[in-house]
């Protein structure tokens, strides 16, 4: 999870205490994914357990500083040097909704798509409006924030484009006499795992 590596990367700049780390994470990511302080301390505990950070000084205000270890620095370098691989592990509610809707009788799929498109465009408008409130970045903090906003904008745009594409695909399928509702399968599915099939050897 990126919180762990992000905190470690911030600690690579110098020792921090818990609240300070939370503030640093927030200001570097435009407070887009705010962390609660409990998450910070849990993460620090795990980082310490794994030998990536260690306790440092306690200052006059009683703040417990944490510092990065050599192994922690290596992990930061590894994180920055390797790609983020997005997995299909999370079910995509929208893809599932459209996939199911297209198989049902009596559903106006064009309307389902339009409702979603309007929402995607509203999101895009709000993000654009927020972005337009700032011109060229004047600080690294603003630059970091703009990068985050841009990602959210491109993600909303991708959704809108996918909806356009799906609409065209459906229209083509309809004109070809496809895209008929899927009747319920009356053959009772067997319980348990599907039986293993013997693969033909090459």
């Amino acid at each position: 999870m990126s919180v762990r590596q992000s905190l470690l990367a911030i600690l690579n700049q110098g020792p921090c205490y818990g609240y300070q780390l939370r503030a640093e994470f927030d200001r570097r990511t435009g407070s887009t994914w705010p962390l609660n302080v409990g998450q910070i301390y849990n993460t620090l505990d795990r980082l310490e357990r794994d030998g990536l950070v260690q306790k440092a000084d306690i200052d006059a205000d009683g703040q417990n500083y944490v510092e990065i270890t050599t192994a922690g620095r290596a992990e930061v370098a590894e994180w920055l040097g390797s790609p983020v691989v997005r997995t299909m592990a999370t079910r995509d509610e929208l893809a599932i909704k459209l996939a199911i809707a297209v198989t049902l009788p009596g559903v106006d799929i064009a309307q389902v798509i339009q409702v979603q498109r309007t929402q995607a465009m509203r999101t895009l408008q709000e993000l654009t409006r927020t972005k337009n409130a700032t011109a060229d970045p004047e600080s690294s903090e603003q630059l970091a924030w703009l990068l985050v906003i841009d990602l959210l904008i491109f993600a909303a745009e991708a959704e809108a484009r996918w909806l356009d594409h799906s609409e065209h695909r459906l229209a083509r399928a309809r004109s070809a006499g496809l895209a008929e509702p899927l009747p319920l399968n009356t053959a009772v599915p067997k319980r348990g795992r599907p039986a293993k099939t013997v693969q033909a050897s090459a």
Partner: peptide, 18 residues
């Protein structure tokens, strides 16, 4: 015209500028 999207005056998506 089948639909319309109107931006709300204040974005609810982000907490705002740094």
């Amino acid at each position: 015209i089948v639909d319309e999207s109107r931006a709300s005056a204040v974005s609810s998506l982000l907490s705002g500028l740094p």
